[in-house]
Simulated assay, not measured.
Amino acid sequence: MRVLILGGTTEASGLARLLAVQEWVAPVLSFAGRTASPVLPPIPHRIGGFGGVAGLDDYLRAESVDLLIDATHPFANQISTNAAQASEIAGIPRLVLQRSGWQPVPGDDWRMVTSVTEAARAIGAKAQRVFLTIGRQDLLPFRDLAPQHDYLIRSVDTPDPALLPPHAEIVTGRGPFDAEAERALLKIKQSQIVVTKNSGGADGKLEAARALGLPVIMVARQAPPPGETVETPAEALAWISAHAGRAPAERGPVDRGPAERGA
Rank of each mutant, 00 (worst) to 15 (best):
R129M: 11
E180M: 00
A184L: 05
L186F: 14
S155W: 12
L139P: 04
I92C: 01
G173I: 02
I188W: 00
V116L: 05
V116K: 03
F131V: 03
P159K: 07
F142M: 11
Q128T: 00
A125G: 10
S115R: 04
D138M: 07
V130E: 09
V130M: 10
A122V: 00
A125Y: 01
T114D: 11
F142H: 09
G91F: 13
Q128R: 08
A181M: 06
H167G: 11
M112R: 15
Q137L: 04
R111H: 15
P141R: 11
P161Y: 10
A125K: 07
A90V: 12
A146W: 02
A125R: 14
D138Q: 09
R174G: 06
D109R: 11
P147G: 07
V130T: 13
Q98M: 12
D138F: 04
R136Y: 14
R183Q: 13
P176V: 12
Q148I: 02
V130N: 07
I188Y: 08
E182Q: 11
L185V: 05
T172A: 06
E118N: 13
R154I: 01
L145Q: 10
A184S: 08
Q103N: 14
P106C: 15
Q103S: 15
R154E: 07
P159T: 06
A146E: 04
L140N: 14
A168I: 00
G175S: 04
R121G: 06
R99M: 13
V116H: 09
L164N: 02
P104G: 01
V96T: 00
P161R: 06
R129H: 07
H149E: 08
P176L: 07
L97N: 13
T172P: 03
L164K: 03
F142Y: 13
L145S: 06
I89A: 08
Q103H: 15
